[in-house]
Design a protein around this nucleic acid. Structure first.
Lengths: 119, 119
DNA sequence: TGCATATATGAATGTTTGCTCATATATTTT
DNA sequence: AAAATATATGAGCAAACATTCATATATGCA
C-alpha cells in the first residue's frame, strides 16, 4: 500500500484488482517480444508478403511481381521479416527464395481475420 | 502475361507461382484490417493494457497504477484500442471502466507467445 | 574478363506514432 | 455555485518507419 501513495496522486484505485493484475503481468521480454512480432505484422506490405509466402516459396522477383512494388521496398521489408525469423531464405544461384519460417503466422492471420470479420 | 512485361523489368519470375499467389490474395479491406489490428497490438503499452484487461475490468486510474504511466498516455492509448473495438467501456459516475471487447485478443496473445517461445 | 541479372543496403525524405503538457469536459461533493 | 476528481483531447515534439533513389555485392554467362 505504501507503494501506492508514493507516486500516484490519483484516488480511485481499486486496490485488489490492481494488485492482482500487477502480480500477474507479462515479463518485459514477453511484452517486447510480442510487440515486436505484432508490429511486424502491422504493415500492409509485410502482411501481403507473408500471405503470399504462406502459399508458395517465392523469390524476391516473384514478390516484386505479386505485390507490384519495387524491388528495394520488398528487400527492405524482407529484411525486417528475416530479422524476426518470420521468414527464412534459401539461395539458389543469383536468386533468393523466401518462405515462412513456421506456421504460427498462419494461425495469427486466421485469428486476426476472425476478429475483423466479427466486427 | 502481357500484364507482366508492361511494368516489370525483371526476368526471373516463376510465372505459375506468381499467378497462383496473385489469384489468391487477400482483399484490400482484409489486408488493411489485419494491418490495423496488428499495428494496434504492436506497441508495448497497448499490450500491457490489453493483458491487464484480460484479467480484470479496470478503470483508467487502475491502469495508470498498473502500468505506472501517466493518465494522459493511458487515455490516448485507450482511445486507439476503443476505435478499433478491441476494448469496450462502461461509465460509472466519474469513472470509466474498460474491458476487452472480445476474446480474440487473448488467442492472438497466446499465438504470439507460442511464436516467441519457439525461437 | 566484362556484362547482365538478382538481391541487398545506405542515405534521404515524408509520414506516422507515442508521449508530454496544458486544458477541456463531466461528474460528484461541499 | 464552487471545488475536487476522473477522464478525454488538442498541440507540439522527438523518435520510428516505409518508401525511393542510388549504389554495392554476388552470381551466371558471353
Amino acid at each position: 500500500m505504501s507503494a501506492f501513495q508514493d507516486r500516484c496522486e490519483v484516488q480511485c484505485i481499486h486496490k485488489e484488482n490492481v494488485i492482482k493484475v500487477k502480480g500477474n503481468s507479462l515479463s518485459s521480454e514477453e511484452i517486447l517480444g510480442l510487440a515486436e512480432i505484432f508490429k511486424a505484422l502491422g504493415d500492409p506490405t509485410r502482411i501481403r508478403i507473408l500471405h503470399a509466402l504462406s502459399q508458395e516459396e517465392l523469390c524476391v522477383c516473384d514478390l516484386v511481381e505479386v505485390l507490384e512494388m519495387n524491388q528495394s521496398a520488398i528487400s527492405h521489408q524482407l529484411r525486417v521479416l528475416r530479422n524476426l525469423r518470420l521468414v527464412k531464405h534459401r539461395k539458389e544461384g543469383k536468386m533468393v527464395f523466401y518462405s515462412l519460417d513456421d506456421d504460427h503466422i498462419i494461425n495469427l492471420f486466421a485469428q486476426g481475420l476472425a476478429h475483423i470479420r466479427h466486427k
